[in-house]
Amino acid sequence: MRPTFDLDLLRTFVAVVDFGGFTRAAEQVHLTQSTVSQQIKKLEANVGHVLLLRDKSSGSVETTEEGELLLSYSRRLLATAAEAMEIMRKPSAPKTVRLGVPEDFAGRRLINLLSSFSAASPQIRLDTTSGWSVQLCRLLDAGEIDLALIKREPGDGACLASWKEELVWVESARHPIRSDPVALAVFPVGCIYRTRAIRAIEADGRRWRIAYTSQGLMGVQAAVASGLGISLLPSDAVLSEHRKLTPVDGFGVQPGSELALVKGRLRLSAEAKFLAEFLTDRLYSAISTGS
């Protein structure tokens, strides 16, 4: 095998040229003068050319034609090596974890929780996407996100963790409505609350109509508060402007839904597993306190 360039030899060679002699070069590279001489001889033996001409009377040196050529390459090799070492010593770039969160959940309790995670884990970059559970499941299947919090029927498939959600019927506290068909303020098609509400009313043999549809929780809450329609919401989404409906009002108790932390088909990275553990540990208390 052909010998490769020894960076220490190149560094000594450049020092001898830059500082005009073996003595001053030895001081700069913290070697003895005899060691510097030996390294230059070794480098010349490796490349098969004399690289430096030394004036014995003055101690100065000058490069040969081959030495001048190698000097240019030496500077580039040493600069590249220094750059590589600097890059390797820097903290590694943050690893990205992609998380999907429910549209009606993102603006309430989760933001502070995710902010605290980012502050405590600067080595992980969190990319969060909000959407309806149906959309988030599609993104998981496509490998476009790593984890998702979705609203679903209890026990509907595998999950990393799950939390029960209490659902309640609500109407306006100031503008109650008693209409036939039942006026509903709901989320778009695919939302479990919308589906549950429609099925429950149909199971009672009653008619319904969609009076208001909103992509966001605040829109549905406002529609209910203003008397546009009734809705089926998580208990922690009930506002002071709302009144809970009971069986006496003709709206029976609904079974709870489920908030589940799920993963896609791809294997989770160490960073995604760390986020999953964080959410599993912290989300229950966040839901319980409504913070």
Rank of each mutant, 00 (worst) to 15 (best):
S57V: 15
A26F: 06
L52R: 08
Q215L: 09
D180L: 15
L233I: 05
A120F: 03
T213Q: 08
A45D: 12
V170Q: 06
P255V: 09
P176E: 07
T4F: 05
L110N: 02
V50D: 04
G190I: 12
G219I: 01
S115C: 04
P234N: 08
G20V: 03
I287E: 11
L239H: 12
A185Q: 01
R138D: 02
T213E: 14
G256E: 06
Y284D: 15
L136R: 05
A173Y: 02
G216R: 12
R199P: 00
P176R: 15
G256P: 05
R152Y: 00
S118H: 09
A173Q: 11
R24C: 03
R206N: 10
S291R: 15
F117C: 10
E68P: 09
P181V: 09
W208H: 14
T4E: 10
C191E: 03
V182G: 02
S115L: 09
L113H: 08
V262I: 14
A260F: 04
M85S: 09
R138Y: 04
R282L: 01
T35R: 15
P102Q: 04
G48S: 11
I210Q: 11
V134S: 06
A272V: 04
L69P: 00
L70N: 07
A15S: 15
V253R: 15
V29H: 14
S72Y: 02
V170K: 03
Y212H: 14
L52F: 04
I87P: 00
K244N: 05
T96Q: 08
A197T: 10
D127L: 03
S92N: 08
G20Y: 01
L160Q: 08
A183S: 14
H242P: 06
P234S: 13
A276G: 05
D249R: 13
Q39F: 14
A120W: 02
A119L: 13
T195Q: 10
V101C: 09
